[in-house]
Design a protein around this nucleic acid. Sequence first.
DNA 1: GATGAATGAGCGTTCATTCAT
DNA 2: GATGAATGAACGCTCATTCAT
Lengths: 192, 192, 192, 192
Amino acid sequence: MSKPDKRSEILSAALDLIAEHGFHGAPMSMIAGRAKVAAGTIYCYFESKDTLIMELYREIEGRILAVIVEECEDERPLRERFVNLFTKLLGYFTEHSLEFRFVEQFHNSPYGAEHRRDKILGKPGDHDVFRQLFEQGVSQGIIKDLPLVILFSLAFGPLLAVVRDHVLGFIQLENGLIETIAASCWDAIKRQ
Amino acid sequence: MSKPDKRSEILSAALDLIAEHGFHGAPMSMIAGRAKVAAGTIYCYFESKDTLIMELYREIEGRILAVIVEECEDERPLRERFVNLFTKLLGYFTEHSLEFRFVEQFHNSPYGAEHRRDKILGKPGDHDVFRQLFEQGVSQGIIKDLPLVILFSLAFGPLLAVVRDHVLGFIQLENGLIETIAASCWDAIKRQ
Amino acid sequence: MSKPDKRSEILSAALDLIAEHGFHGAPMSMIAGRAKVAAGTIYCYFESKDTLIMELYREIEGRILAVIVEECEDERPLRERFVNLFTKLLGYFTEHSLEFRFVEQFHNSPYGAEHRRDKILGKPGDHDVFRQLFEQGVSQGIIKDLPLVILFSLAFGPLLAVVRDHVLGFIQLENGLIETIAASCWDAIKRQ
Amino acid sequence: MSKPDKRSEILSAALDLIAEHGFHGAPMSMIAGRAKVAAGTIYCYFESKDTLIMELYREIEGRILAVIVEECEDERPLRERFVNLFTKLLGYFTEHSLEFRFVEQFHNSPYGAEHRRDKILGKPGDHDVFRQLFEQGVSQGIIKDLPLVILFSLAFGPLLAVVRDHVLGFIQLENGLIETIAASCWDAIKRQ
DNA sequence: GATGAATGAGCGTTCATTCAT
DNA sequence: GATGAATGAACGCTCATTCAT
């Protein structure tokens, strides 16, 4: 390992423990222990447990958005772009299941209360990729003329459900299956 | 109301408080207060807070399944049956948003860890209605030949996502919209 | 001992320890220990450490005011009444030196910030005895025509100073001395 | 200012913060911050927080005694000398209210426990000015024949009380009033 | 000497749980 | 059964102090 600074160690420890045991199952002392620092040290880097969790969330959110944003090939057909994005995202979540579990817990907790509005796949500004895609599709008559929130639910409700099942070990997601799922979600939103 | 026994009062108080404030924000003493019983009384009915929560979950689960099961008109076309079921379920959740919020919290918490396996819409045995419907559809070549878990995710991932948005006040669900959503989920699972 | 309830035990323990070691030298755990209750028990009776201290203050303040108020023989000459009151008060403080030390600490701490205005000998309403005495004296031309606050300082500044010296063991106050001190304070305020 | 060395900066910062917020409210890190030195630097100059506070006390005590000592005109009448001293001292405290507040806190805290014996106006040796004045007065039959401690209390109890009221903003001390107070304290100790 | 990141004991407080009544 | 006062382990957090740089 190169030089994993303490801040990162703490964030990483918090991610592990919260993903595994939930917020109240991950006391600061335990996070400190896992990060191999003293309890007080955490407070050199984060003002409070809330702050730590919030910053961890923002960090993870950033990584996820990075995955989405790097996929912006506007010239290809909509369906292909959608499937691509879907696959990318699903891939990221399944490969980073700790992050997925953390984010899910975050959204379902008082910590994330204020973030529920703009949860990972619904934040205006950051997910212009999706919005553009959907709006283009709607205006071209390719995608059903439904409110954006509904289109999001139709497309990413299954995505999250499938990741949950994967994380819980119910299913093994290989490439073929992932593509079928992506295609099915497209079927849900595309004009028949 | 006639004579709502203490056990029910406790469960009801727990539902209210947990749905509203999360597990964190609903201490036993507060639940007791809301249920108008003494703190110790809860332990006459439930072994521990975990047990209380678990039994509350089971009770709510039962109510939800009852809604599903009563809808078993096997002779109608599959699509219609699916849309019917979907609508019923969505209606139940939106009308009982406390229960919905509780169940969501439960699934996203260590309390529900061991129950995640058999979450409300994926429990083998209880939801034969769905399984039968899906299996029939697959064998008749009407529904895509995918693992059951995937079909569930495709169908009910959006359902839960939409209820979440409704509960948070992002969307207003009226009958037309509900039907469109149900139809879209059918589009996702039906063979194209 | 009759039936010293827990609340009183806690207050008494707090008085002892705070008088002796100051506010930050008397942690809740130590107070609990001295009162022979569990740490959490204190919070059955007091909302917080602040509240405990405030209520203790109010209780002690009440006892002191009771001593003052019971001395209201308006028909005797002013000088005699003043000396009487002075003596009573001085006697109470020297006999209850823990209370004296607690009150002094209280007034010199953030806890007592809002009470500094109306510190034990300057609270309007409660000490009407003193005010009346002083105002009578002024209007009769017996006492110097000075602002009330100044008269208080002249009369009770020495009282508190003397009690401090007594508490610290610098002086032994017997009746003769006390009376001389009282007389001297009268000399300070009386018109020459 | 030329080159205020670090030690002075630290003492000054400690004075400000403790006078303002009490011992509680002035952590070492905050003192360091205000003094523009690193937290650890304080320990180059002071062994511990207690030591710092003790040395700060001694320094302030020195300044106060300097004020007293410079006033030694032995040939003038006793009353005049007393009033002069009283006024000087009162003036110093009101002009240096931070120091006054610090000293008051110090005396009312465990920090000052061992110093209470020799508090500012009662330390044998340092305040020979006062002792001489009082002893002369007693032997000349001008001042009451009372123990020195009592005379101190009679004279300076009001002084401190009045400064407290001034610091808290209850009274405005102008020259006329100050002189009246000084005279009244003289009345308290002088033989009638 | 000076630094400031790191420490960890100890604080005030909460709350699931118990048990004498 | 029902009570609710009492418990005490465990929490989040502070801050005087240390020590490698």
